[in-house]
């Protein structure tokens, strides 16, 4: 007898997990081509042409890409270094709890805190004044809402580096890297060879999907760049929401062009990362 319940489960999965995404994408696509929308008069490619010609999306994409790349590289590099240097100490009771604390801080709080520290009237500006390094607030360098996105990158690093430290510590333990290192040393490998040929390859190989996922999450981050970003170029999500939520009805369609382009890029990344590959897998 056929079991019917899995099919009911699949229907629910499609209804909750697939239909909203498909509906949102189709709505944005139709809006971007002028098929729907209050001020639109029918199918047109003018919004796409206008967006491609303006180049704003590509500038914003490149800007977001660079910020995410710098933040992830520094975070992963720093986390690997911390894991290699402090692994044993980080397993102590007090430290093992303290290192979890940054995970309890949401992006909006990190953005707010970074602003409080690095703005022209912030903590470090006050400290600089008291130390006699500056005589008025405007002399303090632009570290938030700045062109180099210092505040955004710093916030991203403080948000994700602790996560990667914990992740690498966990992989180190689960993959029995300690035992493999001892084995390699007993076979004549030196410390540098153990690090370069055993520890780092295992840590990276086991976590690269999560590293790429975090890169994609940062690419679409909203709260932190909303608080700490500059007017132009803006990070992708901030730009998309600014365009979609503006009062000029003619411009909303262009906002949906941005949304469609972003969705296509992110979906392509998901396909590359998670498309079923024909290779042998093992059950856990």
């Amino acid at each position: 007898m056929k079991n019917k319940s899995p099919n009911f489960g699949i229907i629910l999965f499609i209804a909750i997990g697939v239909v909203p995404f498909a509906a949102a994408f189709i709505y944005a696509l139709l809006y971007s081509f002028g098929v729907i929308g209050v001020a639109n008069k029918g199918f047109t490619t003018e919004f796409w042409t206008s967006v491609v010609a303006s180049g704003e999306f590509f500038r914003s994409f490149l800007y977001s890409l660079l910020i995410a790349l710098v933040a992830v590289s520094i975070s992963v590099g720093g986390a690997l270094w911390s894991t290699l240097k402090f692994r044993k100490r980080l397993e102590q009771k007090f430290l093992s709890f303290v290192i979890y604390l940054p995970l309890a801080v949401p992006g909006i709080v990190t953005g707010f805190f970074t602003f409080q520290l690095f703005s022209k009237g912030g903590f470090f500006a006050r400290l600089s004044y008291q130390l006699g390094w500056i005589t008025e607030a405007s002399q303090f360098p632009d570290l938030v809402n700045d062109a180099l996105a210092f505040g955004i990158v710093l916030s991203f690093i403080t948000m994700i580096m602790p996560f990667f430290v914990l992740l690498f510590l966990n992989v180190y333990k689960n993959e029995r890297i300690e035992a493999l290192s001892v084995l390699a040393q007993s076979l004549g490998a030196n410390a540098k060879q153990v690090t370069q040929r055993i520890i780092l390859p295992i840590l990276i190989k086991k976590t690269w999907v999560l590293i790429v996922l975090y890169f994609i999450f940062l690419l679409g981050a909203y709260e932190v760049p909303l608080i700490l970003g500059q007017e132009s170029p803006q990070m992708l999500s901030v730009l998309i929401i600014r365009e979609i939520k503006q009062y000029d009805l003619d411009k909303i369609s262009e906002g949906y062009v941005f949304a469609v382009m972003y969705t296509l890029i992110v979906s392509a990344a998901a396909i590359v990362l998670f498309l079923p590959k024909k290779r042998r897998t093992y059950e856990t």
Binding site: G17, P20, Y27, I240, I241, I244, A259, T263, S267, A269
Partner: peptide
Amino acid sequence: LTLLAYFPYILAPVVFAACLSFF
């Protein structure tokens, strides 16, 4: 099916919400 589940997971929630707000 897993791949399909990743699409909404990986998309920025704010952009997802903006495109869903009509519904």
